[in-house]
Design a protein around this nucleic acid. Sequence first.
RNA 1: GGUGCCUUGGAUGAGUGGCUUAGUCAACGGUCUGCAAAACCGUCUACAGCAGUUCGAAUCUGCUAGGCACCU
Length: 295
Amino acid sequence: MKRLVVIVGPTAIGKTAAAITLAQQLQTEILSCDSRQFYRELEIGVARPSPTELQTVPHHFIANRSVQQPYNVYDYEHEALDLLDHLFQTHDTVIAVGGSGLYIDALCKGIHVLPDPSPQLRASLNQRVANGELPKMLEELRQLDPEYYAIVDRSNPIRIQRALEIILTAGHPYSELLDKPLPERTFDIVKIGLQCPRETLRDRIDRRVDQMMQQGLLEEVQSLTPYRNINTLNTVGYKELFNYLDGNTQLAQAITDIKNHTWQYAKKQITWFSRYPEIKWVENEKKSDLMQVIR
RNA sequence: GGUGCCUUGGAUGAGUGGCUUAGUCAACGGUCUGCAAAACCGUCUACAGCAGUUCGAAUCUGCUAGGCACCU
């Protein structure tokens, strides 16, 4: 049976290097599972692997699309599965690396096929949220899909809006659609989690942010000004510097903000991955353990 | 030496006698099925100190300490 080795862990822990080491040993390729490294416009701020690293081992889903084109987990899942089909023809093991929990889940467990709402519907729901009609929308959701209503985060507009757009497009309750079983994966999955002491991770994050600034993150952000209102740019490392460029903060403060927000992100990732019961944890510096774990 | 003003939780910052523990940020914990490095939720009950007025004070009075401003 073919095997997908998934390397996860918080940002800045050293996933890229670990994946490359492992890929070299296994003579295989790497599939990225990072929701920001997909974009060719984002490089320094999302810690894209260096050109050298990218040359060492073939990478997929790195800088393969533009922030101008909409993209989502479902698209990713399908492209990734197609690619895996192809790679498994010549490799027994393929490596996936990334820190985007939702994308990792989609890759490993799959995600339901849901209808695409029309742009008009989405726009009108957007408008309603903006108009403060959330309570009304919540009531509609309760009528249309009491089961989902019972479990949604009712204070999260995004969740309410999404449920409604699905229900109205499909003509079925959202919960019903989610009840359908997902097809099993046709390959084995081994999850490896990279970990290190809390303080070490904080240091790594702080140092990496400083490095990014030295590499010219500010210039990168500046050059992205035309896209700043695209949601993809609502990203740690970018939003803070846009803030600085707008004159709302001092540069030093913006950098501190990036460090803090990156740390918060790292903690959220750790929380997410802590839900994987099957994960095998490995110290980030002990690359020799990687091979042992997947044996 | 004199006069006036200021002192709120880790930071910032509202609140001029009771209605509430403002809010924001940070910190900490958590949620998660199509923009996810997003969005959302929970926890952290402070009023410089002391004495007094009052049924009741962060809010009024006095003194003490620290800070700022002006005056001789």
